[in-house]
Design a protein around this nucleic acid. Sequence first.
DNA 1: TCAAGTAAGGGTCATTACAACCCTAAGTCC
DNA 2: GGACTTAGGGTTGTAATGACCCTTACTTGA
Lengths: 241, 241
Amino acid sequence: MVSGETRKADDASVALAVSTVIFALRRDEASGLATVWLPLVRRIREPFDGLWALPGGPLGAAEDLATAAGRTLGETTGLIPGYLEQLYAFGNADRSPGPRVVSIVYWALVQSEEAERASVGENVQWFPADDLPALAFDHNLIVDYALWRLRNKMEYSRIAHAFLGETFTLTQLREVHEAVRGRPLDPANFRRFIEGSDAVVATDQRVTGTRHRPPRLYRYNTSIDLADQGPLSRLNERREP
Amino acid sequence: MVSGETRKADDASVALAVSTVIFALRRDEASGLATVWLPLVRRIREPFDGLWALPGGPLGAAEDLATAAGRTLGETTGLIPGYLEQLYAFGNADRSPGPRVVSIVYWALVQSEEAERASVGENVQWFPADDLPALAFDHNLIVDYALWRLRNKMEYSRIAHAFLGETFTLTQLREVHEAVRGRPLDPANFRRFIEGSDAVVATDQRVTGTRHRPPRLYRYNTSIDLADQGPLSRLNERREP
DNA sequence: TCAAGTAAGGGTCATTACAACCCTAAGTCC
DNA sequence: GGACTTAGGGTTGTAATGACCCTTACTTGA
């Protein structure tokens, strides 16, 4: 008959971790097509010593969850995401051998240029999101879910610009959608769709030096953004069958 | 450079709680219209002593998160939900005075008849979801978010039957949608929509004793359900702007 | 200097989803 | 038997979407 907010868990050995699935796009030199990649971190202790895992770490004492996700991501990979949203809390009793771990997982997007700059070494590497090796814990499941959320959300939301810089052409924006959704989109229809939603604002600049008609540069319409995540805003989710 | 899955939080005083927002429909005697209600539990200790709060409790040592949500819900309210899904993990550092609490919140639906049977007393009461008093912690925010998720999901998903019994008429199903979405729906269009999706299967039974043409009873098409929650199934979410 | 090549950017048209609306069917009630 | 009520089926107009076409404006190569 009592709300349990302030009771402690009976078993104090439940550890709380925060992890982040962060995506960037990479262009394949051969085909010219972009695909979705993510950085993973090699574990250097048991369990799953030597396997690849999501970047993450423990929750700081006075730290919000999203802050912890950003901080641990930065500490392990050096990346600063342009978009960050809670994905799911994974806490099945059998998801980890040894002591019980509940992971609150975030998913994030980062610009390609930013991704290039980030530290990569023996213990941090980028992998193609739909062709991963066996990961530590239930992290394959987590990545699959995050990838599905990304694809789903790309269809109704305005997150694509988090993969791009300040300004971009509609073709670049279309290529982001094509990379995530995995199929080509009609350029004319895409243009009409984007300009119909006021997701984007035309600048008066154009890209010169291409071998064709110079495309106009666009900027994201930040007057709609406001807050973009979680329970504070209703701008961020929509459907699934 | 290390995945933090098995490290403990620096501050062991972070408590992990599981709470549930559970909705049922109630028909207003006067207007005949149904609205969304939820049960709350009165707190009997500090902080927020005497205020109403969501049912919940601590996570058991070897217990999955959803199991803990169902268990604590049953212990405090006696309700057994027909639908249960994770909502969000609330963990802002300032969401509770005193020791740090991270709450993993679930949302659930229960049949009206089941809701009637459940224990109600001085410390458990039902409230209309749109018109709540000031609740303990950030629970007003949580309920608002859950309500928004319910309304959103009702538009693309097949969860409405969780408010109803084994069999039901299309008018009953339509009234559920109307109650949640808060506006009347065209009966003919609704019928076509539902029969077009194979969400529902006609039985050969009809309801007799009404003062009009006897309506056919339907049953939900369980061959599509399979799993319905979380990362294990892709059947459960969709859009938001 | 000019033709070929390429993507930008604007348009049309057929198909489809959906909302508004109408009409008949099949019971009960008086 | 006639009025009343909801079930349940149909039609029509409109908006959204995909497939496709055409012109524009630049670069490149002959």
